[in-house]
Amino acid sequence: MTPTRKKRLILIVAMVVGVGIATALAVTAFNDNLMFYFSPSEVAEGKAPVDHPFRVGGLVTNGSVKRQSDGLTVEFTLTDTRATIPVRYTGILPDLFREGQGIIARGRLNEAGVFVADEVLAKHDENYMPPEVADSLKTAQQGGDVR
């Protein structure tokens, strides 16, 4: 490799490393702002903002979904297995909303400690399988036999 080429190579590597370090520092500094949602335990620890809306993400607790008589308002609790937070939402829920499903709600906490959401999004997980496999997995988890 000729000296000029070597110099150019070193310059380019130095540039990538420099930009990389700068980006890493910037991204670490903004780490909290890059988080899309808070978990229920973070909310319980008081890490969530009080004065403006935020998002909370967790699993819909099994057996907690209650529909109000107006047909649109839903109450349920969100959990990350360590802390649980009650949520109230009026509006249309996404297709994937169900008990045990991961969801993300945006809104704010009221005085009673209920999270009043104005938007509910379903968080899909990274698992893809045919229904039969899902069924047999469920049976296996419940201690039944797998065909």
């Binding site: 978990s39 990274e126 893809y128």
Partner: peptide
């Protein structure tokens, strides 16, 4: 970070979480 987008299904060291 916490994202709405799900985690990797195929491009990870573990077994892919897809049938």
């Amino acid at each position: 970070w916490n994202t709405l987008h799900q985690g990797p299904t195929v491009t990870k060291l573990d077994k892919p979480s897809i049938a």
